[in-house]
Design a protein around this nucleic acid. Sequence first.
DNA 1: GCGATCAGCT
DNA 2: CACAGCTGATCGC
Length: 424
Amino acid sequence: MEKGLVSIDRWNEGSQAYFLTHLHDDHTAGLSAAWRRGPLFCSPVTASLLPFRFRGFDVSLIRVIEVGATRALDLVSPASGAPVRVLVTAIDAHHCPGALMYLFHGTFGWVLYTGDFRWELSSERSQLAKRMLLDVLQGNTIDVLYMDNTYCNPSFSFPPREVATKQVIDIIVMHPDHDIVIAIGNLGKEELLVNISKALNIKIRVWPERLRTMHLLGYKDVFTTNTSLTRVRAIPRYSFTFETIDGLNQMRPTIGIMPSGLPWLLDTSKNTTLYTSLKSHQSEASPDLLQDMPHVRKLKHNAYCVPYSEHSCFSEIAQFIKVLQPSNISGIVSSTYIYINPRYYFSRVDRYLSDKSCESSKSGKSEVDKMGSSSGCKPSWQVRKEWKIKYVSLTSSGHVRRVSGLPRARRGAKIEASDSVSSS
DNA sequence: GCGATCAGCT
DNA sequence: CACAGCTGATCGC
């Protein structure tokens, strides 16, 4: 797609139409109440939250697009001045509330930008979204897939949210005399809390700002700020530390639950914060009550990490790729130090669909060399902050544009835009 | 003094 | 280290 036509989750450069996938902070950098570069497309839910997040935002800029709807954009080629028609269809991403994927179609071909997404294999909602996507494609091939590659590594394996929800409920039930604190962010994990509320017939306590978000999302009787109504409380993730949980335990017996696809562990050096070990994030054998809860980690005597993720795990990503068979793939998340070029796995994605995991990639050294890693299917755990290019705009060549503005020479090899996109 | 951006941290 | 996001420093206006 030609540059200067549309931007997705990018707000600092000139385009004729802007698309917001969802309202997490790392997708809204550059958006503010003062922003008014052009029309902003988003889901109805995102539209209802946007003026709350950015108070004073010019709502006349908002263009609501419903899941399954297709919009025609009549744009103008910045290069030639010729009219350009772009069709865009919104697809349910089932990430946080209001999260969308955008499928673009025009003379440039078909481009799918997933944003962050979780499509569980068994989920009805995902099946519906998949059918919608395939219906619109009508057998056409996606030319470029910009994809949420957060957990794009075979070592990331966790169950559907339904299972993780049951695990959280079980932990709560097994501690009938404890207060429970669950770490959440400003948006996301609502379904988890609602299902806890339903299963245990209790309200969930949240902080005041979060209650307003819940009301905007349409939850009426589930949440409260009243301290005396419930023993289950959601707290901001940044305040979920062992220090906090220990402090709460000075008052009342309290269990902390961290719902996350990341493998959190105790930071033994500080003893106050959580720590994630990326070298050993297979679930360790856990005593007693965790016997039937694969992937649940006991962080400390009074805290658990439950694998509730709003990003697809690797097998789900692999399935996604297998269904779509795109010509080119580009990861949209590269700020994670576990980033690996999606092409490495997706070019041989079939072998991962049978859950053979790491074994199969030990076969050829040449594959290892191609990948630029020294350890087979293991991720290359390099820390390269300058690889932050999560937000892209689509250009004529389909290349990923960098945000950071670092010299080309400093780019990480694995995220080289042309490397990801132009070959297949 | 303000917003935008970034470093540092969780 | 960071799914996402807070705090505080710094820069430009």
